[in-house]
Design a protein around this nucleic acid. Sequence first.
DNA 1: AAATCCGCCAACCGCCCTACC
DNA 2: GGGTAGGGCGGTTGGCGGATT
Length: 317
Amino acid sequence: MRKPSSSPAAAGKAAPKTTPCCSKVGLKRGPWTPEEDELLASYIKKEGEGRWRTLPKKAGLLRCGKSCRLRWMNYLRPSVKRGQIAPDEEDLILRLHRLLGNRWSLIAGRIPGRTDNEIKNYWNTHLSKKLISQGIDPRTHKPLNTQSFDQSKPSSSQANLHQASLKEPIKIVSSALEETTSDSTHIISNKENEYYQNNINAHLDDQYHTDHILASHGYTNLLNYDGTSGVDLRGNQRLGNGEAEDIHTGTEDVFSFLNSLINEEAFQQHQIFNVPNVNSAQPSSDPLASIAATTFGLNTGWESTLMPSSVQQNDSK
DNA sequence: AAATCCGCCAACCGCCCTACC
DNA sequence: GGGTAGGGCGGTTGGCGGATT
């Protein structure tokens, strides 16, 4: 069974205070049985959600309230969509994660029928590995290392670069990479390497600029471009008692804003504003378009939006 | 066929917040 | 202001089942 308090979160901290809910003397743990599911579902159907600590006793369950809530939220709720994550959902998760970081509940709030737990699991088991295989840091969504990209596949043409998406990951490789030698660390030419470095920096500046744009629109502390968690939509606290409450407060604006980033119009703007221009990585004067361009640039392959044809042409020789 | 490995994901954990008294 | 209850969050664990040896 599980080791008690073995998680890093618990390690090295003062003696944890135990809330009543966490004293599980005599309570059942582990996988839920169909009978328990039935008891919980029928009780909530009659009495509604809430009062989780007293619910188990009233429902005749030997579970703690937290366990009941989790089971309901992640599995039994009628609105929960089961089954595989669709490609468009995956794409959305990637975009939202780059914007929001590990705010799983917030991400889940924009993907109907999916729970934060499900998205978190999918991220950890699929998407983070996928990004790593593309040479992208899943935490920051930035290139891990210009010399550590996947060299196992042949390079893409310029046209392909502009059609890039995460569904068909684009690898940053030059024609030289196709002539793989044992000294692979020096395969990317100095010219290309210098170019990558310059534009990575430009892109980082662009992201920094994006945050200031957001701040100017009142979306302070929304972004966390270093990829760490701990700050969210309320400044320094997590979302409170349910999204319903938030939807009627500031979060509604944030969701509207997110929607504006997700919709097709933003994609079209992205196409317009991401005309490759090696001499300028300046954001657009249109704040939303600039954010959209910056936000989606990496998702369509940062190299495709930043690398000029003069460099890309090396790709096809 | 049996043993081992490994990925997936349901469930648990501690922490933190707001609301209430 | 302090204590407690209720609830939500992200991080992590470990059982299970399929794949591999």
